[in-house]
Write a protein that binds this DNA or RNA. Structure first.
Lengths: 193, 193
DNA sequence: TTGACAAGTGGAGACTGTCTCCATATTTTG
DNA sequence: CAAAATATGGAGACAGTCTCCACTTGTCAA
C-alpha cells in the first residue's frame, strides 16, 4: 500500500480544474441534501460535459468517495491523535462516540460509507478500508492492555458500524446508533477473570 | 394491526394463479442466486405479461417481500416457541444465533431484509416490522427477569442486525456476523450490581 | 345455460436515465 | 511555433421501467 494521493500521472491543467469543479459542486449539492440528481444534469450544473464527468468519475460512488475522502481522512487522523493521547480503551470509546456524532450531522458521509462498506470491491472501497485499518489499530491497542476481549476483530465492529451508517434516515437514528455503540463497547469489555 | 393475510378483496381465480406463478418463479430464481434479472424478462419467464407483473408487484421489493414473507413468518413463530420453552435470556440468544445461521444459507432473505430495513416506509416494510415486534417481545421478557439491561430498545438491536444483513456477500460474513451477535449479547447482559 | 358486468390481461411503445463515441479544442513539449 | 498528447462536450445509442387500453376471462344472478 504505497502513496495514494500523489499517485501516478500529473493531470493536465484544465482537467484538474474540471475535476475540482465537479467535486466542489457535488459537495455543495450533497450538503443541501440533494443526492439523487440525474447524473447528466449534474454535469451541466457543474459546467462540464457528460463525457467529462464520466471520465473523471465513472460512477456515483466514485464521486461520493472523492467528495468524502478528505472528511474520512480527517476522522482517521483524529483516531491517531486519540490513540497517543488517551488510554487505549478510552481512545476506542471516544472514537466510536465521535464517529456517530459526526455521522449524525453529515448524512452524506453516512450514506457514502454505507455504500462503500457494502461494496468490498477493492479500488472503490479504499476509504472504507482506511477506516477498517484505524479500527483495527484502536482495537489492537486496547487488546494489548487487556481491557477488552481478544476474540472479535475489526470486521465485526465494522459490521456494526455498517448498520449504523445504513440507517442514516431513520427517525430514531441517533438513539439507536448510540445504543449500538454502547452495546459494542460493553460487549467488548472483558468479563471479570 | 388487524389481519394481513386474509386482508380485503378476494382475488379472482386467474389473478391468484398468476400471482402464485410469479412468486414461485421468483423463489426459484432467487434460490439460484439470480436477483438482477430484467423485470420485464422476469414476467416473460413466469409466463405473464409485463402489465400483470406490475399490477401484482409494483416494485422489486414488493416481490421480494412476498417471496420471503412466509420464511420471515416462520422465524417469528420460532421466536414465540423459544419464548415459551426457554428462560428469557436463552430464548433471546437462541433466536439471534438462529437468525444468523438462517441468513447464512439464505442470501436472498438477507438481501431482502437489508432492503426492507432500509426503507422504513410503512406498507412495504411490514415484514421488517414483524421482526421488530418479535425482538421487542424477546427483549422485554429478558428485561423483566432482570438478566439484561433496560436502556436499549429493539430498534438498537435491529440496527445491528441491519449491519449483518447488509453484509451478506462479504467473504468474512459468518465470522463477523457471529461476532456482532456475541457483542450484542454480552453488551446486553447486566453488569454486576 | 346464458347474458351482462366486473375483473384481469398482455405487450406495444412512451419515457427516463446511463453511458459511449469521436470530431473538435486545449495544453504541453521539443 | 508546430506536432503530439491530452481532454472536451453533447448528440444519440441503449437499456430498463412502467403505463395504457383494446381485448380476454371469470363471476354471478336470473
Amino acid at each position: 500500500m504505497g502513496p495514494h494521493v500523489t499517485d501516478a500521472k500529473p493531470l493536465r491543467a484544465d482537467a484538474r480544474r474540471n475535476r475540482d469543479a465537479l467535486i466542489a459542486k457535488a459537495r455543495e449539492l450533497f450538503a443541501g441534501g440533494c443526492f439523487n440528481l440525474r447524473f447528466d444534469d449534474f454535469a451541466k450544473l457543474a459546467g462540464v460535459g457528460t463525457g467529462t464527468l464520466y471520465r473523471h468519475f465513472p460512477t456515483r460512488e466514485a464521486l461520493a468517495e472523492a467528495v468524502y475522502r478528505e472528511e474520512l481522512t480527517a476522522m482517521c487522523d483524529r483516531a491517531h491523535e486519540l490513540q497517543v493521547t488517551l488510554p487505549a480503551d478510552e481512545a476506542l470509546e471516544s472514537f466510536l462516540r465521535g464517529f456517530v456524532d459526526h455521522l449524525h450531522s453529515h448524512e452524506g458521509l453516512a450514506r457514502t460509507l454505507a455504500t462503500l462498506m457494502a461494496t468490498q470491491s477493492g479500488a472503490l472501497a479504499e476509504g472504507a478500508q482506511a477506516l477498517g485499518q484505524v479500527i483495527d489499530d484502536l482495537l489492537a491497542a486496547a487488546v494489548a492492555t487487556g481491557t477488552i476481549r481478544d476474540d472479535v476483530g475489526a470486521g465485526t465492529v465494522m459490521m456494526a458500524l455498517h448498520g449504523i451508517c445504513a440507517a442514516y434516515d431513520h427517525p430514531t437514528y441517533r438513539t439507536d446508533a448510540d445504543g449500538v455503540i454502547t452495546l459494542v463497547l460493553a460487549g467488548l469489555r472483558r468479563t471479570a477473570p
